[in-house]
Simulated assay, not measured.
Amino acid sequence: MTDIILHHYPTSPFAEKVRRVLAWKKLPWKSVIIPIMMPKPDLLPLTGGYRRTPVMQVGADVYCDTALICAVLERIAPSPSLYPAPVAGQARLLAQWADSTLFWTVIPHVFQPAGVQSVLGHLTPEQMQAFSADRAAMRGNAPRMHPGDAAAALQQYLRWLEDMLAHGQPWLLGEEASIADFSAYHCLWFLRNATAVAGILDQFAGLRKWMNSIDALPLAAPEKLGAEGALQIANTSTPATPGAAFVDTHGIAPGTLVTVTPADYAQDPVAGELVAATDSEYAVRRKDDRAGEVVVHFPRIGYQLRRAQ
């Protein structure tokens, strides 16, 4: 198996989700630390414009979005499973809710003035201003919840999650961990790290115990890799051959020049030749002077496929 390379930074909540899944599956990996905000001159040659964190690289295949990254890790190491058969559908649905609704409720609660200091207090005023401008550009015109509304909704969501653990089961959906646990965990991990506003968790003993179980997963130290090393690996590797059946829902044939764009935020299109469209994934082939020929993969859900103009 080609090495797993994770492009991430330590305080990224979505990267923490993947780091914990790697620990759960006991998979070795290599770490490339990327900037917390644009520019990302050593990442974009791999992704073609996709700027979210994290990105996973396996040779010359580049995987975007943690929903897909976790599915690929499942293919690499099916046991222990992130999608236990009795609850696989529930787990995927709860994970999607956590990655979207729960996450975007946590964010305005955390980014109150006190919370910002907890999370970003290490930045200089100039860096803080640049970070604010960067995240505003990422969100575009997407609406943002008022902190008061976020606090009220977050109380409800935490109570519902606590109820799922109320009968002594160790994980949200029963006796086995699933993708739902890791998706909900990374949101609450980010909330807990914002110590000035994390008191909202104090009343939920079951959730705190559940988080401690995930905290206890042994995080093997990854091998550190420089960005140039990762680009060299891509440049000297051959992308994997798509194996799944082509599923056409757009009237766009394989080999067509297309763009794939996130549907919600950070809407930076990635252009390339469509090489795969399975029931759950898009993949486009592109070339870059530094990365060589790579195939960039996206989940179908949450992304828009269009013919390139």
Rank of each mutant, 00 (worst) to 15 (best):
Y265C: 12
T241F: 11
T256R: 07
L173S: 07
T124I: 09
A136R: 11
Y63H: 14
D149E: 12
L172E: 00
E228G: 06
P10G: 10
M38P: 05
R92M: 14
K287Y: 13
L27I: 04
Q127V: 14
V87Q: 07
P108R: 02
V62I: 15
E175Q: 13
N193I: 09
A271E: 13
A91F: 08
I107R: 09
F204Q: 01
P10N: 02
I233W: 03
P147Q: 07
A196Y: 05
Y185T: 08
R159L: 08
A77Q: 14
N141Q: 10
G251S: 11
P143N: 01
V275M: 12
I179F: 13
P54A: 05
L217S: 05
F246Y: 15
T47P: 03
A240P: 01
R135Q: 07
P113Y: 07
S213D: 13
P222V: 04
E223N: 14
K209S: 12
R144V: 07
I301R: 11
A151R: 15
M211E: 05
P80E: 03
H186G: 02
L22C: 03
A91V: 10
G206A: 07
S213M: 15
A133N: 13
G199L: 11
K30I: 03
H250I: 01
A263G: 15
A95Y: 06
S31R: 01
A151H: 15
A198W: 08
V18T: 07
T66K: 11
P218I: 06
Q129A: 15
T195Y: 10
N235S: 13
Q309H: 13
A152P: 08
L120T: 13
L161G: 01
P80V: 08
K26H: 12
W97P: 07
L73V: 09
T249A: 01
S31Q: 03
Y185W: 15
Q127I: 12
I5H: 04
A227C: 13
L219M: 12
L305V: 03
M145A: 13
S79H: 14
L172D: 00
V119H: 03
Q117N: 13
L274M: 06
Q304F: 14
M145V: 05
A98F: 13
R290L: 14
H122T: 14
H186F: 09
F103Y: 10
Q309L: 11
K224E: 05
P254M: 12
W29T: 02
V119A: 12
V119C: 11
A253F: 05
V18W: 03
Q129C: 15
T249W: 01
P10L: 04
V270S: 07
N235W: 10
Y282H: 03
G206F: 00
L43V: 06
L173P: 00
L305E: 00
E162R: 07
G174T: 06
P147M: 11
Y83V: 06
K287M: 13
G229T: 01
W24H: 12
L161P: 04
A227T: 09
P54W: 00
A85R: 15
E162G: 02
G272Q: 06
I233E: 03
S118N: 03
L154Y: 02
P299V: 09
V58R: 15
G140D: 00
R75Y: 13
P299D: 10
A151W: 11
E162L: 02
Y9K: 02
R135P: 01
E223H: 15
T241M: 09
